[in-house]
Amino acid sequence: MKENQISTGKIIDGKEVFAVELTNIRGSKVKIYNYGAIVSSFIVKNAKGEDQDIVLGFDDFDGYVNEDYLANYPYMGAVIGRYANRIKNGRFTIGGQDYQLDGNLHGGENGFDKKVWDILPTIDPSLTLQYISPAGEENFPGKLTVQLTFKLSDEDELILDFHAVTDATTAVNLTHHAYFNLATKGGNVAQYHHRMAASRYLEQDEEYIVTGNVLPVEGTIHDFLAGKPIGQDWNPEEGYDQSYVLDKAYGQMGLASETTEANSGLKLEVFTTEPIAHFYTAKYLDVTNAKGGKDYHKFEAFCVETQHAPNGINIPEFPETTLSPGETYLQTTIFKVTS
């Protein structure tokens, strides 16, 4: 693998925005911006031997800070923090003290997805980004130092390693929000064959807030254990926006999902050390003038967001989503592509 760092010429909050390209011996390429740790492209060879970009994004950086895009913001390709997904009413309690966030989704109104991360030196060809979130940012307690390392293996595995420490107990639940489309010409993902390694899912209320109830997938539209077309059982107006409890030991690296598109022959497998995978079929996606001038519409992508339980900070029975001084937050997620 090799890396190449290119300036975009843009300065945000006094920091320069760079694009970093990782390339492996197969000729596969990943482009990542240090703004939001955005994975802007992931180019692999499909079964026809053609180069194919499997993530949604823009041709250049300006698209990610365009006002029209931000007005209906889908977090396309970005890191999510301090807390992925939804916290009920944006409130939680740590050490007897109540905290009210500025928003209840993906870490607040101005989360890690809108920060310019520092590029750290690395020994091997990889990209390590660091962001230091000050105490009180988005009303979270504690200064949180986060490092995220990207590697592209010669087996077309995009490996994400998260590392975080804090100086005061705080809430932490990180993920990455890449939108995938495996078809050569894009379009609706309903016919993709999808499997989740999960026999249980997390109940959600009408506002998509996790309630604390863990339910079996058997006999429901959420049963992907044997694999099936994504659109086989879905509500065609809603799609999927659902968290699944993975069938593996807590903290163990294991399969989260496997998705295949017949015409391109591409298969995307997601492996993670996290206990939860949130499966989202882009119901709210509405982006104009994206790559190649294309528009992106609802259900034209899918996301597999590996994380701890959404709203887990408010559900004592769920795995811990607080981090204290002296502890280290670690997570590894792998996106593996084959054809």
Rank of each mutant, 00 (worst) to 15 (best):
A135S: 15
I25E: 14
R91H: 12
Y284F: 12
F150I: 08
I54F: 02
E137G: 04
Y240G: 06
Y35H: 04
G96K: 00
F92G: 00
Y244H: 05
H176V: 06
P236N: 14
D51V: 05
L158G: 11
E274K: 14
R82H: 05
V270G: 07
R200H: 14
M253T: 11
P141E: 08
D154A: 02
L160C: 01
L105R: 11
N263T: 12
G90Y: 02
T273R: 02
D241F: 00
N213H: 14
L160N: 06
K291H: 08
V17T: 02
F140S: 01
D113W: 00
G142P: 05
K151G: 01
Q191L: 11
Q232T: 10
G212V: 10
A198I: 09
G136C: 10
I54E: 06
P325G: 09
T321G: 01
H193V: 11
G251S: 09
N89K: 14
P216M: 02
E317I: 13
F140Y: 15
E155R: 13
T128P: 00
E317N: 12
E317R: 12
T122H: 03
N34I: 02
Y201E: 07
H297D: 02
P141T: 03
V116Q: 06
T338M: 08
P316L: 03
K228A: 10
Y244I: 08
M1N: 04
A47Q: 13
A71H: 01
K45N: 05
P316A: 05
L268E: 07
I87Y: 01
E155H: 14
G187V: 09
S126P: 07
R82P: 15
E300I: 02
L105S: 10
L323I: 03
T272M: 09
A183L: 08
K228E: 10
G49S: 14
E203M: 11
L120W: 12
G292N: 01
H193A: 08
G111Y: 02
D223T: 02
V189Y: 03
T169A: 12
E305N: 04
K15V: 04
G63F: 02
V30F: 00
D295F: 05
K115I: 04
W117E: 04
T149I: 08
P141C: 00
V146M: 08
T145E: 13
L160A: 05
S153V: 09
N188R: 11
L202H: 07
G90Q: 04
L152K: 03
D113Y: 01
V79C: 10
F61W: 09
K114R: 14
T128M: 03
K336L: 00
I12S: 01
L70K: 14
